[in-house]
Amino acid sequence: MENPWTTKSIKEVYDNPWISVSHREVITPNQTEGIYGKVHFKNKAIGIIPLDQDGNTWLVGQYRYTIDAYSWEIPMGGGLIENDILDVAKRELQEETGLTAFKWTQLMKLHTSNSVTDEVGYVFLAEMLEEGESNFDPTEKLVIRKLPLIKAISMVMEGEITDAISIAGLLKVAKLLNI
Rank of each mutant, 00 (worst) to 15 (best):
M1D: 04
N3Y: 00
N3L: 05
P4K: 06
I10P: 01
W18D: 14
S22E: 13
P29M: 01
T32S: 15
I35K: 09
K38Q: 15
K38Y: 12
V39M: 13
G47H: 01
I48P: 03
T57E: 00
V60E: 11
A69D: 08
W72L: 15
W72S: 14
E73F: 06
P75K: 08
G77V: 07
G79E: 09
G79K: 13
I81T: 12
E82M: 11
L86M: 13
V88H: 10
A89Y: 12
E92T: 13
L93R: 07
L93K: 08
E95F: 02
T100K: 15
T100M: 12
F102P: 07
Q106L: 11
M108R: 08
K109W: 00
L110I: 10
H111R: 12
H111I: 09
G121H: 03
Y122A: 13
A126Q: 04
E127Y: 09
L129R: 04
E131Q: 14
N135D: 11
N135R: 07
F136M: 00
I144Y: 07
R145N: 08
K146N: 05
L147A: 04
I150V: 11
I150Q: 10
A152S: 06
V156M: 00
M157Y: 13
G159R: 03
I161L: 04
D163V: 07
D163P: 05
D163L: 05
I165G: 15
S166V: 06
G169V: 03
K172A: 02
K175Q: 14
L176E: 08
I179E: 07
